[in-house]
Design a protein around this nucleic acid. Structure first.
Lengths: 334, 334
DNA sequence: CAAGCCTAAGTTAGCGCTGTCATAAAAAAT
DNA sequence: ATTTTTTATGACAGCGCTAACTTAGGCTTG
């Protein structure tokens, strides 16, 4: 049989309450007793039952991560970051894939909370902007932190990067290389980061006194196929762009594929830039110039914020980084 | 306050035990009473406390997925597949990243079991072959299913694909195209699939009466960089291979990059084949000929097997599929 | 038609912890 | 020297369920 707190208390010759105190790092335990208890715990390799703790106490030592994202790489980074902070805290992580657009989202969140009694929740984009889900969390008084929320920033603690500035930086980089006709592929309309990146692109053009041409902007869905489709249209223009900036790496991969198919040589005939710096970016040919989004660190910071348990909303902004690789250069011809 | 089983029993005018029976789909509940209870559950939107169920019963309605894999895509597929089956079963999934090589693995597994009382465990490769962890699971009588185990197949239920046959198929495909000098990049030595793929490659060569040349076989680690390194060595040979078969897509991407860098045109100057059919495969240039590993389905089947609760070890083998894309063709020159 | 069996419920203990309250000794404040 | 506060510990109820047992009526069987 697995040992219980009773076995520990018997071995250490203290009451079960004292063992509980040591386990929960409560005050008012003398050094000697603490050492005795810890020794007994180690000797029996005792592990407290999560179920009993949850049932008896007001903490469950579990938090949930709710996400809906199509990029395995992004999710993986998020999970890894949150997980790392949870380990430090001795807290279990429940990963809950969801569908931001589903009408059942609220019910799912409610069921998750009721069943598992999680101590807090981390939401990653675009679930961050499912307002009904936020309402539900607040109704139940569950603390939560959002990663890269798009709306109602004041509503909760959050971590984010500056999408506007990042897109501005990348666009400015292309302009500095000498590009004047710069195509842009917008991200998925569900993600508010999409708007922000578009805005950053426009802001950079504006500052450089380059006219904004709507024909150089195409919609996308953050996936490879939509990148291909957009690239085909952009490259069919009478005056095609000399550079294309896609709002994420997957779409940029689509652009590269279309360009290869047309026999273009990158970056000579076309510069291509992405966003995110996923694993893909460095594995494409040519390796992709992109924006490194500090996804893992954002996730870690989000978990840290959750454990800090600030009463009022706190926002942390992490720095992005331009990653210059071989897919961009000065435009060749006129 | 969230409703408890007591509230439901009061509303439905039955004892709490009867509610419990309905919840757990036990026998000996009349239709009328069952309907009354279900109505009360819906009305209160009652969700049973996982903690209380775990503490009181011998089931926790949770299973764990333990993995250690560097490919986000692979993990994502695995998680998605297992998750899908868990939803159907009304069981929660705990995802536990681990390190197959860590000496603490056994302790981590033990702690996981003791703390959470999971009803079963799914192990994905290469944790499948951490024998100490298997010992620990067996010692505690926790049912487990392995996804693509490499060793001791009789020891537990498992799901897998035929790595040998798949590698044989791909190699045969290259031979059929006319290739005689076929390079091979082995996978990570921790993964037994690596051996099997190598064996399939040799078997196909052997059947075609092509001499096995050790110089055409290079070690790899399943990552992009090791693919690059191996490709550089293979292409520097006096008689370089006309095709390279990498044991996974990431390494194949490395091969493509090296080939691009050397100014080769694929597939004319070099055919490249991968393994896994990750998202990457179709996003590279040229799109990669590869083996589709039914990862998601394997994971789903693994969870299904776990819930079946067979006493003796059952093995399910799922079919792979050759995905022919533009990275392979007949060799150009002699 | 009595003995046994199945069905459909209910009663109660207790799973392994934490929260609350009680208690007592030591330290600090009067 | 006495009161008050702080520190250190224990006793015990109870969190919300399920397991095991109990009860009682209807049905089968020899």
């Amino acid at each position: 049989m697995r040992p219980t707190i009773k076995d520990v208390s018997a071995l250490a010759q203290v009451s079960i309450k004292t063992v509980s105190r040591v386990l929960n790092k409560e005050r008012y335990v003398s050094e000697g007793v603490r050492a005795r208890v810890e020794k007994a715990v180690a000797e029996l390799s005792f592990q407290p039952s999560a179920a009993a703790r949850t049932l008896a106490g007001r903490r469950s030592h579990q938090i949930a991560l709710i996400y809906d994202n199509h990029s395995p790489h992004y999710i993986h980074q998020i999970q890894t970051g949150v997980w790392a902070r949870c380990i430090e805290e001795g807290v279990r992580l429940l990963a809950q894939p969801s569908d931001a657009a589903s009408p059942h989202l609220v019910d799912e969140v409610g069921a998750l909370i009721d069943q598992t009694q999680v101590d807090g929740v981390i939401l990653s984009s675009p679930i961050t902007d499912a307002l009904a889900a936020l309402d539900e969390l607040e109704r139940r008084g569950i603390p939560y932190v959002r990663i890269s929320p798009g709306t109602e920033h004041g509503r909760s603690s959050s971590v984010s990067m500056d999408d506007v500035q990042a897109a501005d930086d990348m666009t400015s980089h292309l302009i500095a290389l000498g590009h004047q006709r710069i195509g842009f592929i917008v991200g998925h309309p569900n993600h508010t980061a999409s708007d922000q990146r578009l805005f950053g692109y426009r802001r950079a053009l504006d500052r450089a006194n380059i006219d904004f041409e709507p024909k150089y902007v195409r919609p996308g869905l953050f996936d490879f196929a939509s990148g291909e489709a957009a690239a085909d249209i952009l490259l069919d223009l009478p005056q095609p762009p000399t550079a294309i900036f896609a709002s994420n790496d997957d779409m940029a991969a689509g652009v590269l594929t279309v360009a290869h198919r047309r026999g273009l040589s990158m970056p000579r005939d076309l510069s291509v830039a992405g966003f995110d710096d996923t694993a893909l970016a460095s594995q494409l040919w040519p390796p992709l110039t992109t924006v490194r989004q500090p996804t893992r660190d954002l996730a870690y910071a989000a978990a840290a914020l959750l454990f800090e348990g600030q009463a009022k909303a706190v926002h942390r902004r992490l720095a992005h980084e331009l990653v210059l690789r071989a897919s961009t250069s000065a435009p060749q011809s006129r």
